[in-house]
Simulated assay, not measured.
Amino acid sequence: MGLKEQITEDMKTAMRAKDSGKLGTIRLLTAAMKQKEVDERIELTDTHVLAIIEKMIKQRKDSITQFEAGGRQDLADIEKAELAVLSGYMPAALSDDEISGEVAAAVAATGAAGPQDMGKVMAVLKPKLAGRADMTAVSALVKNALSQA
């Protein structure tokens, strides 16, 4: 079963269980998925769905930071609940050692010699690590690896 089908099944389950918090979050996710399908006239793959979920997770994290800074813990708690539901659809995160190994392999595979080759290395890593690692941290690791090369 693909990720899109899993999300649809989870929505049905949440409806039956009358779990309004989870249902609302899944409906937001399905709306974002449908919007992308309509806008780009494509059938979403798991990669597309993961990209949408990553974006929504990033939005939730930003909102939590802002709400907590503004003293609105009630709103931050709602965002945290949504974040928990969305995070459930992400694949298992890679460890720092695994990410470092992937970076080293990508640098070797592309023959990158310095910071000017960062785009080539990131192009190799992005499909492999999407949804399984924070790409900002990966970018920092690549930059560090290339500056020492």
Rank of each mutant, 00 (worst) to 15 (best):
M1V: 12
K4G: 10
Q6C: 06
D10Q: 14
T13K: 04
T13P: 05
A14E: 09
A14S: 09
R16D: 10
A17M: 11
S20F: 15
G21A: 12
I26M: 06
I26F: 04
L28F: 05
L28V: 01
A31C: 06
A32C: 14
K36Y: 10
K36A: 14
D39N: 13
D39P: 12
R41V: 02
L44Y: 06
T47G: 13
T47C: 13
V49I: 11
L50Q: 11
I53E: 06
I57C: 12
K58I: 07
S63V: 03
S63D: 04
I64K: 02
I64E: 07
Q66R: 10
G70M: 06
G70L: 02
G70T: 01
G71W: 15
R72H: 13
D74K: 05
A81D: 08
A84P: 05
A84C: 06
S87P: 00
A93I: 00
L94R: 07
D97Q: 03
E98R: 02
I99H: 05
G101K: 04
E102W: 08
A105P: 02
A105C: 11
A106C: 14
A108G: 07
A109P: 06
G111W: 02
A112I: 12
A113D: 04
A113Q: 11
G114S: 05
G119W: 13
K126G: 12
P127G: 13
P127T: 15
A133R: 05
T136N: 15
T136K: 08
V138F: 07
A140N: 14
N144K: 10
A145M: 12
L146P: 07
Q148A: 15
